[in-house]
Design a protein around this nucleic acid. Structure first.
Lengths: 153, 153
DNA sequence: TTAAAATATATCGTATACGATATATTTATT
DNA sequence: AATAAATATATCGTATACGATATATTTTAA
């Protein structure tokens, strides 16, 4: 067995574990708000800029519509956001924060900041880690966008 | 909105995206072998050391038994591994590679090495990224293991 | 030496995530 | 203007992932 194929030597496995661990961590933190991590991502996006189209949200949180749509619908059911058809383009759906979601922003983000403070040192100090991951993500995105062009992969 | 709460400033979001991108990449590469990434992880573990207990596999690939068991069962269905009850401990199940899995190791790992060569530079050169992620994972694991001890979180 | 605690799997309900497909609407082309 | 191509959502099937619970077996303790 080639050394680079040992599980513990693989970057993708490290990323895989980190994502699962983050999901676990956020699950506990967000549970009191009856939110999951992807649902929280959508709220974060809308807190930055309200009234986004599903398409725009999809790009912002990097999820396909097949994944995102059920998540948005959950948020609608739970009273965090509303959907309405755009008047400009009757295909497009505008997602907006409810009053509840607007009011809870401060509370939720404060809570996150408190609970994730253990990671904060690492997160805040380590712009380096984040920017290396960012490079990695750009590379991976490019690779994945070359779908069908198998000669490049 | 606090700057650190912008989506693009969050480490966890970067990790989340990287994991999804890796999953997409491996989905394409592994598809010809009728394998998914978690299924491939199990094979990697067994190629390192065959005949592991479900428990040991669970620790090696960092997945709970609720997640892992169906994955192993899929591998059994597709003829990659077999399960047999341990004679030492009748609760424990030993998972072993089939001949097919043993024979295909070289082929599959070669293919991965080829197809992921675009990332290789980054992966091989950047022990730094991997080891920072490793620290992150240790921290996150610790946090997640303090389950129930809310005074610490 | 039994009853209790611990351990190893298995199963279930909920929520992603993806790709493939379907539908409605808009834009581009003849 | 009528049709074709493109776009924005929606839905579906498959496969994770988790926590909670159930079951069987082993170990520990009373």
């Amino acid at each position: 067995m080639n050394k680079s194929f040992k599980l513990d030597n693989q970057l993708c496995f490290e990323v895989y574990k980190a994502a699962n661990q983050f999901a676990k961590l956020y699950r506990r933190i967000l549970e009191p708000f009856d939110l999951t991590y992807p649902q929280y991502l959508v709220l974060l996006a809308l807190w930055e800029k309200d009234q986004l189209l599903v398409k725009q949200l999809s790009e912002k949180v990097c999820l396909g519509i097949g994944t995102l749509n059920p998540i948005i619908n959950k948020l609608v059911d739970k009273g965090w956001v509303t959907k309405k058809v755009s008047t400009q383009d009757k295909r497009a759906i505008i997602v907006s924060l409810t009053e509840k979601a607007q009011l809870q922003e401060t509370l939720i983000t404060k809570e996150i900041l408190n609970k994730v403070s253990e990671c904060e040192t690492l997160i805040v100090q380590d712009g380096a880690l984040k920017s290396r991951l960012n490079e990695l993500n750009e590379l991976l995105t490019q690779l994945n966008e070359m779908e069908g062009k198998d000669e490049y992969l």
